[in-house]
């Protein structure tokens, strides 16, 4: 069996067992509360979203998103309050601007931009949070595992 054949088989084996790994950055006041409400309302969701709490979506540095992709995340979600409803008045406007540009950067460097998603979900929108989680998981499942950006898939240069 050649090396390439082996890797193809490995990939197949991997993909059947593969479960998406999605990192969510949720602002404390809206989206994290929305996720809590989804829980309180017992809205079932696929178990692949891991939420990191931040005070405001404006706190999320695009570097963290890149880091997540490098470390093997298949998708990243940044969720904040609806524009105009930010707990800190204007934080999510900066999120919106930063990540609009960031998404173009991903596109530019040839990385599937669909792996990164930004959403506005309020603390009252438990159903929307749950629906959105399902949608993000479906999207990432369609895209398959992240192979381009993960550090362990990039040949390591040894000096």
């Amino acid at each position: 069996m050649s090396v390439s054949e082996k890797s193809v088989l490995n990939q197949k084996a991997e993909s059947s067992a593969w479960k998406p790994k999605i990192i969510g950055f949720c602002c404390n006041w809206c989206s994290y509360a929305g996720a809590d409400l989804a829980g309180i309302s017992r809205f079932k969701q696929p178990p692949y979203l891991r939420i990191i709490r931040v005070p405001c979506s404006g706190r999320v540095n695009p570097v963290y998103v890149l880091r997540a992709f490098q470390k093997g995340a298949d998708g990243v979600l940044v969720a904040g309050c609806h524009p105009g409803d930010c707990h800190y008045a204007t934080g999510n406007y900066f999120t919106r601007r930063r990540f609009l540009i960031f998404k173009r950067l991903l596109e530019y460097v040839g990385f599937e931009p669909g792996r990164f998603q930004a959403r506005w979900i309020s603390g009252a929108e438990g159903q929307k949070f749950a629906d959105n989680t399902k949608k993000v998981v479906d999207d990432i499942k369609t895209l398959g595992p992240n192979k381009r950006m993960r550090l362990d898939s990039i040949p390591q240069i040894k000096y």
Binding site: K19, A38, G39, R42, K44, P47
Partner: peptide, 23 residues
């Protein structure tokens, strides 16, 4: 957050819920 973000939303998938909880 093992309750709102885990057990309450994955009631029919204890195995993966446990995996997520560990994470």
């Amino acid at each position: 957050n093992l309750r709102e973000h885990c057990s309450w939303i994955h009631p029919d998938n204890p195995e993966e819920a446990t995996e997520k909880a560990i994470n």
